[in-house]
């Protein structure tokens, strides 16, 4: 019985984190992006600096009519948002937050192969966007879907290679294990890998500057063109959950997770701080850089990121063996 309660409790905690963190990141995007553009962003909702803007947005989305276009492939169209959202929820299950006041590691479930599990979940999440592009029965969605597919295939490889480099250095595929093995000099030794991982992660999430599949100026909204209301909200939530997962993974793999002063007690706090910092970087990249053209997106992956990732693996091999 205690086991069941424990499992339930963990699930509830993961779902709660899943519901809260993306909203925090979303709000940060609203405000940080606004100030980077000399605006103030939402100010009204909730009273204090528009803190409840995303809650208000959610309420609005719920009220909207759910529409399926006549030309759409109904089943695929309706299933796509769930396929986009659920994998990130699963991914969060395996991401460790670190020691919690000496009570052991705060994590949904410590997997022996946590790294592969999270990467696999992230790659499945993109399938949802692809389904949206296929099922909408809309040319813009279709072209967007093709771009999603091309982008996913290009960036999956450097991402996995970069992650493999850290796993090699740590000698384990468990996320907890990798963060425990982490040493400060990895910040330098694994820097190219970190950049490759982060950039490939941005591309996999279709975040600007890699949002050629969505490209509102040319493709309206790409695969999300026909979506509205609750389904669109699920895609949005998936995007922000994706940012959280990417930031958490970058933190655990490259920034030492909960490493920091008093990490035995407040390790989880260090992880959260680092996750937020990386999420801020994701937002910053969105504001600072213009969108890459479709051919630039692919040539960046194959001509820059893959060679750098391979070089990083070679370097790590030398360091591990030596």
């Amino acid at each position: 019985m205690a086991e069941v309660i424990d499992a339930l409790l963990r699930c509830v905690a993961v779902v709660a984190v899943f519901m809260v963190f993306p909203l925090v990141v979303g709000q940060m995007e609203h405000k940080a992006m606004a100030h980077m553009q000399s605006r103030v962003g939402p100010m009204k909702a909730g009273g204090f600096h528009g803190w409840a803007q995303l809650v208000a947005d959610g309420v609005k989305f719920v009220q909207k009519e759910s529409i399926v276009p006549t030309a759409a492939d109904r089943k695929v169209f309706e299933l796509a948002p769930a396929v986009a959202l659920v994998p990130y929820l699963l991914a969060m299950l395996a991401i460790p937050l670190g020691p919690f006041f000496g009570q052991g590691n705060l994590i949904g479930q410590d997997l022996d192969l946590g790294l592969f599990f999270v990467l696999a979940a992230m790659s499945v999440g993109v399938l949802g966007t692809l389904m949206g592009g296929l099922g909408s029965g809309n040319k813009y969605s279709y072209i967007g879907g093709m771009r999603v597919a091309a982008q996913l295939m290009s960036y999956e490889l450097p991402m996995v290679l970069a992650a493999a480099s850290v796993a090699m250095a740590a000698g384990t595929l468990s996320l907890v294990g990798i963060a425990n093995e982490w040493e400060p000099w990895w910040l330098v030794a694994q820097l190219p890998g970190m950049v490759v991982f982060f950039v490939a992660g941005l591309a996999e999430l279709q975040r600007p500057p890699f949002d050629a599949p969505l490209a509102d100026a040319e493709l309206v909204m790409g695969p999300l063109t026909e979506y509205g209301g609750m389904r669109f909200a699920m895609f949005l939530l998936a995007e922000y959950a994706g940012i959280v997962v990417l930031a958490a993974l970058t933190t655990v793999l490259y920034l030492g997770g909960w490493a920091g002063p008093f990490s035995d007690d407040i390790g989880w706090l260090w992880t959260l701080v680092k996750v937020m910092a990386v999420s801020f970087l994701v937002i910053w990249a969105r504001v600072a850089y213009p969108r890459l053209r479709e051919d630039q997106v692919n040539s960046l992956a194959w001509k820059v990121l893959v060679p750098v990732a391979l070089a990083q693996i070679t370097l790590t091999t030398v360091l591990v063996v030596a």
């Binding site: 192969l113 592969f116 599990f117 990467l119 696999a120 979940a121 790659s123 499945v124 993109v126 399938l127 692809l130 296929l134 597919a149 996913l152 295939m153 999956e156 996995v160």
Partner: peptide, 16 residues
């Protein structure tokens, strides 16, 4: 997990 990562995440995407 490799099955999911490679086949679901990449091979099926390639097929599509």
């Amino acid at each position: 997990w490799v099955q999911v990562l490679v086949y679901v995440g990449s091979v099926v995407v390639l097929v599509i």
